[in-house]
């Protein structure tokens, strides 16, 4: 560094030519600076306090609008969402393998069906992943989940699940309670099973029978399944008589999505309370 540059930098009084005033005393400096800071703080704080009610009203309206959009897109869940005390909704994109939320991806623009067809956004499941007869043939890398909050506390998670039935692909919403173990509801949103037989999975009574069931057993293993003549244990749902294969399809679908290949990693993060 040149010598001249050094002296410039080391605070020669020359800079005062900018305002044409002599350098100031320390006490005066401190008083003036503190006064300005105090007045500014007062101004900002007053504005914030006075306008707070209006801000809160806008935020509330925005939250309600997003809840209304959710209800509109999943009509089956209307009563559940409305009966909850949740006051806000977050739609997040999850990377399924890590169970981490993905920032910077627009949740509203995410199209799960399209992702499933896109080779770069999904992968084929093979025997290395487990029993291929019990799982879908492909799975996307990402999924969109809706999380309902009651004052910052997670209240409900709405997870999209899908898988092969007897003669069609089943699509459903699985709603989990705050413990992420108890099922609040299973809502079949799309199916093309044999009318009158397999299609009875759309029967409200049968869907109701999922409510209150538990995903995990005492050893924290995924134990939920559909069985014939359930014994009333919290991990068993009674199958539909005459529609064994479709019932089995629903069972496989839920089990797959609760496993490590599905939402398992996400649920573990959320249960531990350290979402990533």
């Amino acid at each position: 560094m040149s010598e001249r540059h050094m002296t410039d930098r080391l605070g020669s009084p020359e800079h005062s030519h900018l305002t044409g005033r002599p350098p100031d005393g320390v006490v005066r400096n401190v008083i003036a600076t503190a006064t300005v800071a105090g007045l500014c703080a007062l101004l900002v704080a007053t504005a914030a306090v006075l306008l707070q009610p209006r801000h809160a009203a806008h935020l509330q309206a925005a939250r309600q609008a997003s809840m209304a959009r959710l209800i509109e897109s999943i009509p089956q869940l209307q009563s559940i969402v409305l009966s909850s005390t949740a006051d806000s909704l977050q739609s997040r994109i999850v990377e399924l393998d890590t169970g981490c939320f993905v920032a910077g991806m627009d949740a509203d623009a995410f199209d799960a069906r399209k992702a499933l067809e896109e080779p770069s956004q999904s992968r084929e499941l093979s025997a290395a992943d487990g029993d291929v007869t019990m799982m879908p043939s492909r799975r996307a890398h990402f999924a969109k989940v809706d999380l309902l909050y009651d004052r910052e506390r997670l209240q409900m998670a709405i997870l999209p699940v899908s898988g092969p039935g007897y003669q069609s692909t089943l699509h459903a919403w699985l709603v989990l309670a705050a413990d992420l173990n108890t099922i609040v509801a299973l809502a079949i949103s799309e199916q093309g099973e044999t009318p009158g037989i397999g299609s009875r999975i759309e029967n409200p009574q049968w869907q109701q029978s999922w409510s209150g069931k538990q995903i995990l057993d005492e050893n924290d293993q995924v134990a939920i399944r559909v069985v014939r003549n359930a014994d009333g244990s919290p991990n068993q749902v009674d199958g539909i008589s005459g529609a064994t294969r479709t019932s089995q399809g629903v069972s496989n679908m839920v089990r797959f999505w609760m496993s490590d290949l599905g939402f398992g990693p996400l649920l573990q993060h959320l249960r531990r309370g350290d979402p990533c």
């Binding site: 400096n29 003036a32 300005v36 500014c40 900002v44 306008l51 209006r54 806008h58």
Partner: peptide, 29 residues
């Protein structure tokens, strides 16, 4: 009244306070 040495900080503080107030007003109305 603005001291030379803390001139920029004071200017930024004043501007920032005004901006926050304007931003709050926009958010409210």
């Amino acid at each position: 009244h603005i001291p030379n040495s803390t001139r920029l900080i004071i200017q930024i503080t004043i501007i920032a306070s005004l901006v926050i107030v304007v931003d709050l007003l926009l958010k409210a109305y």
